[in-house]
Design a protein around this nucleic acid. Structure first.
Lengths: 195, 195
DNA sequence: GAATTCATGTAAGATGTTACATGATTAG
DNA sequence: CTAATCATGTAACATCTTACATGAATTC
């Protein structure tokens, strides 16, 4: 039930925010660690309200509802933060593919690996630009958001390096499989192309 | 629809496997990058069969069904592997909490961060033990599985280092907020406890 | 006054979790 | 003969995605 706590936490930090406001935060910031669509968000706001963890503090133009966290909501959020150990998410579609790379030709494998390296390089550039572009405040969301950006950079760099390393590993594995002769044992007159 | 392809890929690599066999592979290996419960797996096998991507090659004792990938299944798997760019999963419950760490006391924050560092250290040890314990074969699943273990180690080490770094960052941020005086400006006679 | 942004909501369907249910075969 | 393992399935429920639907207020 993390979406519940993501929404609860956002409302705690952004008192008086509307669903629309929260949605923008998900898009630009929180969504990087816990994405949510509009329909899911409004649904969750309804449930949170019914459960008495948040309440409508004010209604504005266009049916705008300004939410506020209740005492019971704050207690629930605190409980989640300090007492409930987070569970790691193991899903990684990219690594899932790595398991099956033996089913396609070596050229496709290398294309895949190089694609990942390049993509992660671009992503790292984007993160750098993003970080410079935001004018970071001193509010909690900014302070901790900045730490998470640093995490994103380290994560992307680690993956890029791993994909580079793994591509080499696979390459030398392929070499051994297709040219099992040890170096120095070539037949005379049999020259390597491009050597 | 990644579960579909995870199952399809496993059957491609483990010809003649039963749902039960596949389930064990999810538990010990594939589940680290794409988890699946028993009920989900059997459901998916049914759908895959209906779609003609796999077929029952043989029936054994206790109603055991030995599955085999079909040509159309192999084509679908290949298509997924080379033509469909994998999408990254952004969900990270632990980092989600980091966003809201400003809502609890500094002591709780440090407890949380230290807990993460310790947990990741233990996990790294486990991975090392696991790696030594397995007798790695030369089959695809072993070869690529070994690469993924290395990924797991780098991932855990990166996270551990980040949590250590972030804990220090937060600590010095707290210092600035609660003791805004610069060092060397203390009043005479005002001593720090525990100094 | 037209386009954009603000603002909320619902419905259908896919995906995933927890729990229940059953029974055959093998190992000790 | 008892326990463990092998083996498959279903039902209820929670979560998440995609698409539809509507309209008020603001900006140009």
């Amino acid at each position: 039930m993390s979406l519940r706590h993501a929404v609860l936490g956002l409302i705690a930090e952004m008192d008086g925010a509307s669903g629309y406001d929260l949605l923008k935060m998900f898009e630009i910031s929180l969504g990087n660690v816990w994405p949510a669509r509009q329909s899911q968000l409004y649904g969750e706001l309804g449930k949170l309200s019914d459960a008495g963890l948040i309440e409508v503090a004010d209604e504005g133009p266009r049916g705008r509802k300004a939410y506020r966290i209740t005492d019971s909501g704050r207690a629930e959020l605190r409980h989640w933060l300090v007492d409930v150990p987070p569970k790691g998410n193991r899903k990684d579609e990219t690594l899932l593919r790595v398991f099956f790379l033996g089913l396609v030709e070596p050229e496709e494998v290398q294309r895949f690996m190089r694609g990942q390296v390049a993509g992660l390089g671009r992503y790292l550039d984007e993160l750098g630009t993003l970080e410079k572009g935001i004018d970071w405040g001193e509010d909690d969301l900014s302070v901790y958001g900045r730490l998470v950006i640093e995490y994103g950079k380290r994560y992307a760099a680690m993956r890029r390096d791993w994909f580079e390393w793994a591509a080499h590993e696979i390459d030398s594995l392929d070499d051994r499989a297709h040219r099992p002769k040890r170096p120095g044992q070539e037949q005379p007159g049999e020259e390597r192309p491009g050597g």
